[in-house]
Amino acid sequence: MAPGRRRLDGPRPAGSTGPRPTDNAQDNTHMLAVNRKLDFRFHRSTHAYQLDLPNT
């Protein structure tokens, strides 16, 4: 596994409890289907915007 990454089912930091966050794009239907199969629940939605700036 790449440095700086940890498995979702691996050890968690001390004092860390509760559900594990996931995030998927709304158009990633395959991963959303996996999340539903694993009984993950929708919690919140975020939006990201990107502006293309002209090269100067």
Rank of each mutant, 00 (worst) to 15 (best):
L8T: 06
L32I: 14
H43P: 00
V34C: 10
H47P: 00
R7N: 12
S45E: 14
S16I: 00
L51C: 08
S45M: 13
N28V: 15
P11H: 05
D27P: 01
L32R: 07
R12S: 10
P13H: 07
R7S: 08
N35T: 04
T46Y: 10
S45C: 13
H47T: 08
Q26K: 02
P21H: 01
L51H: 14
T22Y: 15
H30P: 03
N55F: 03
N28A: 14
L32D: 01
T29L: 13
P21M: 03
L8M: 08
R41M: 04
M31Y: 07
N24F: 08
F42S: 02
L38D: 03
N24E: 14
R44S: 15
P3D: 04
H30R: 15
Q50I: 06
H30D: 11
M1D: 08
G15L: 05
H47C: 00
V34S: 01
N35I: 00
R36P: 00
L8S: 06
M1Q: 09
S16W: 05
S16G: 00
F42G: 01
L8V: 07
D9Y: 04
T22L: 15
A14S: 15
P21C: 04
P21F: 02
V34K: 09
R44N: 13
L53Q: 09
P3N: 05
K37D: 06
D39I: 02
P3G: 02
G10E: 04
D52S: 04
A14L: 05
M1W: 05
D52G: 05
S45H: 15
P19C: 00
G15M: 09
Y49K: 04
R6L: 05
A33P: 02
L38H: 07
T56N: 08
P21W: 02
P13R: 13
F42T: 06
L53F: 07
G10R: 06
R6C: 07
N24L: 10
F40G: 01
H43Q: 09
R5N: 06
S45L: 13
G10V: 09
P19T: 01
A14D: 11
G18E: 12
T56F: 00
N28G: 11
P21K: 02
H43Y: 12
N24A: 15
N24W: 08
P11D: 14
R7V: 01
P3W: 00
D23A: 14
G15N: 05
D39E: 15
R44D: 12
D9G: 14
H47M: 05
R7T: 03
H30V: 06
G10L: 04
N28T: 11
A25N: 10
A25W: 10
A48Q: 07
R20M: 12
N35V: 01
T46K: 04
S16K: 12
T22R: 10
T56P: 03
F42P: 07
H30L: 11
L8I: 12
G15Q: 03
D39T: 07
R6G: 10
A2E: 06
P19R: 06
A2R: 07
G4E: 02
V34E: 02
P19M: 00
